[in-house]
């Protein structure tokens, strides 16, 4: 059974289960939805979607970790996922480049499309997908190799460069774009593990952008860093927005407010509310979002 719903100016055909999520009460202004409502509040679609997720469910063995989440991720936007610990935001993030495949008990249903291709389709190549959708992790995880080797790893395995000088240039370029070049110029061949936490994380970002992905997923990239290092990373994210679509999971609402254009709030596996960052933080429409924003829990 299918049904046609009109949201904004767009008309999309959706099946019933997804329609549940489409409760779009934006016209109703300031009205706050009650706690019991587990359906997504806010507009899930965008004009120029890079990734489109519809009815995504994730299970760990028996545990239902993500419940029927649908949203669009726009081209060259920064979207942030916020929510209390264990709400499933990281799990959802890891679905976007199929990192969950490495966990054997994990099962994903629903649809996630990247440029109109379903990434869970059989003939999709995980290797290619991950090259297109890069990821930066919560804890900086440089390989126990030199800084240079860390950056060169991706281009090498994908055969992106032919000569040593091209590779050198690519490494320098990536470090430059990650704003790390000045700090490491003289120590390119020292181990990456010798850098400070913030530098390590920027190294990991440089490593991710070295293969020029289309989307970058960031899983709480600043949670292990001090404020100064955090500020640098946020600055970097702002610059990267020009060329990349960035999805960032964060614990810090201030950070979400600072770096992202859209924000989605997750709670116990449900996506409770999504909308423009300004609106979410100034004018939440769901009780749960409001409680979280105002610091009543989380």
């Amino acid at each position: 059974m299918s049904k046609t719903t009109t949201i904004g100016n767009q008309t999309i055909s959706l099946n019933d289960s997804i329609a549940r999520n489409e409760l779009d009460n934006q016209e109703s202004g300031v009205q706050v939805t009650d706690y019991d409502n587990r359906q997504t509040v806010g507009k899930i679609t965008v004009d120029k979607p890079k990734m489109v997720c519809r009815g995504v469910n994730v299970y760990y063995s028996q545990k239902h970790a993500i419940k029927n989440v649908s949203l669009d991720i726009g081209t060259n936007e920064v979207i942030s996922f916020i929510g209390p610990s264990g709400c499933g935001k990281s799990t959802f993030l890891r679905c976007l480049n199929r990192m969950n495949d490495t966990i054997t008990t994990c099962r994903v249903t629903g649809q996630i499309k990247l440029d109109n291709e379903d990434i869970y389709e059989k003939d999709i190549d995980v290797v290619q997908l991950r090259a297109r959708v890069g990821m930066v992790f919560q804890k900086p995880n440089p390989f126990p190799k030199s800084i240079y080797e860390n950056i060169a790893y991706g281009p090498r395995i994908h055969g992106m460069v032919n000569t040593k000088s091209e590779l050198d240039e690519l490494v320098r370029d990536s470090l430059e774009r990650a704003g790390l070049i000045k700090e490491v110029e003289k120590r390119m061949h020292e181990p990456g593990t010798g850098l400070s936490g913030g530098q390590q994380q920027r190294l990991c970002i440089a490593r991710a952008i070295a293969i020029n992905p289309e989307v970058i997923l960031m899983d709480e990239p600043c949670s292990a860093l001090d404020p100064i290092a955090t500020a640098k990373i946020e600055e970097l994210i702002d610059e990267l927005r020009e060329n990349y679509t960035i999805v960032i999971v964060t614990h810090s609402m201030q950070q979400a407010a600072r770096v992202s254009q859209r924000t989605a709030y997750f709670h116990l596996g449900d996506m409770i509310e999504i909308g423009d960052t300004d609106q979410i933080f100034t004018n939440p429409r769901h009780k749960l979002t409001e409680d979280y924003i105002t610091g009543r829990f989380g």
């Binding site: 990192m99 890069g134 995880n141 126990p144 790893y153 395995i157």
Partner: peptide, 27 residues
């Protein structure tokens, strides 16, 4: 070898054998 090493490599689009040969074994 911590899982984060493997994750870091997979996230760059490395295959399993590449991860093993270039990250896991050296580490």
């Amino acid at each position: 070898v911590p899982q984060s090493m493997r994750d870091g490599s997979y996230a760059l689009g490395a295959t399993k054998s590449e991860t093993i040969k270039r990250v896991l074994l050296p580490a």
